[in-house]
Simulated assay, not measured.
Amino acid sequence: MATMDDVARLAGVSVSTVSHVLNSTRAVAPDTRSRVEDAMARLAYRRNDVARSLAQRKTRTVGVAISALTNPYFGTLVSAVNEELGSRGYAVILGDTGDEPGHEATVVERMLDQRVAGLLLAPSARAGEGTVPQVLAHGVPLVLVDRHTDADCDQVVPLNREPVEDLVHHLADLGHTRIAAVCGMAGLDTTTERLDGYRAVVAARGLDEDPALVLPGHSRADAAEDAVLHAFARPDRPSAVVVLNNAMTIGTLRALDRLGLAVPGDVALVCYDDFEWADLFRPRLTAVRQDLTTMARRAVRLLLGRVAGDDHPPVLERITPSLQHRESCGCRQAAERDARVPARP
């Protein structure tokens, strides 16, 4: 392999000049830079980032610990993070936590062993008790994404409660009084906040508060399918359902299909987390769409700021999602039936 000495000799410059060209640490005359770049091309020179990292005791890699393989939403978020970091000259080490605290701790420990410059983490239900303190104790910059904890670190998360309130208000406006909620994994702030939004509107609008309407979807398609099959096979089945993440929406749709229930003819459906393909479903899904690009950009900027030495107090940023109003809520049918729309309190 060609070395910096080889490049310097061929270009007729000092090794320090080659270093300045590589690292943009000092202005280099255009003709000199051209000679150095030409020499690197002729020698097929590649910078030894391993040696550079050992010398500086840090790498240009960022660990991303997230449950990416079991949740399509997280896959989209990882893609946005990878693009943002790549544009800034950083590589990504991805570790799938499976949303299991023990495995999450192992994944994070391995990333710390590889001297990542910083870490982005979508914390599991108990990360605040173990994984997050583990990272902070190592002094490695940390930003939590999508989910937040009480930890003393930067966090970039979506607005959860208010968008769900809007979904349930919308169903109530269409005349539904018995509305089910398919809920995520216990212990996650996203589950708690979204369920709080559902319950707040149920109470405010005088809707059916039957505890059996809160269905345990555990943030998984299979668990949501089982819960919906059981609840909607009953004679007093709900007339509408709000699903609180996209993996559970898939399970809910499968269950309704197995029961022979049409959306929205038999059951109105709205969901938190939009799909890339949500407008291809028939009917198209009314869904809350998160701004994953903004979330990724803000998380990466905060993290790299910490890597560069920013010492401002930790921040909690809320990214506001948008409502994609389509047909699965049944608005078109409601209009055709001249349904009365009660005024919102």
Rank of each mutant, 00 (worst) to 15 (best):
M4P: 04
D5I: 13
D5P: 00
A11D: 10
G12T: 15
S14V: 10
V15H: 00
S16P: 00
S19H: 10
S19Q: 07
S19A: 13
V21I: 13
L22K: 06
L22T: 06
N23W: 04
R26S: 13
A29E: 13
P30I: 01
T32P: 00
S34D: 15
A39W: 07
M40W: 03
R47I: 07
D49E: 14
R60L: 06
V62M: 05
V64Q: 02
I66A: 04
P72F: 12
Y73M: 09
G75Q: 09
T76E: 13
L77M: 14
V78L: 14
V78I: 11
S87D: 15
G89S: 03
V92G: 02
G95M: 02
G98H: 11
E100C: 02
P101S: 12
G102Q: 09
T106H: 13
V107Q: 10
R110C: 12
M111R: 04
M111V: 05
L112C: 12
G118L: 08
L119C: 12
A122G: 00
A127N: 03
V132F: 07
Q134H: 12
Q134P: 01
L136S: 06
L136C: 03
G139Y: 07
V140R: 11
V145K: 03
D150P: 00
D152L: 08
D154M: 08
V156N: 03
E165V: 04
L167S: 05
V168Q: 05
G175F: 12
G175R: 03
R178M: 03
I179Q: 07
T191W: 09
E193D: 09
L195I: 07
Y198L: 09
R199F: 05
A200S: 10
E209G: 04
A212K: 05
A212G: 13
A212D: 15
L213E: 11
L213W: 11
D222R: 03
A224C: 06
A224K: 06
A227M: 07
A231M: 10
A240G: 05
N246G: 07
T252S: 15
L253T: 09
A255M: 04
R258V: 04
R258N: 08
L259H: 11
L261M: 01
A262H: 11
V267R: 05
A268K: 01
C271L: 01
E276F: 01
W277A: 02
R282L: 09
P283R: 11
R284K: 14
L285E: 03
T286K: 05
R289W: 11
T293A: 06
M295N: 02
M295Y: 01
A299I: 14
R301H: 08
L302K: 09
L303G: 03
L304W: 09
R306Y: 07
D311L: 14
H312L: 00
L316T: 10
E317F: 00
S322W: 05
L323I: 14
L323W: 10
Q324P: 00
R326L: 14
A334D: 05
R344Y: 02
P345L: 10
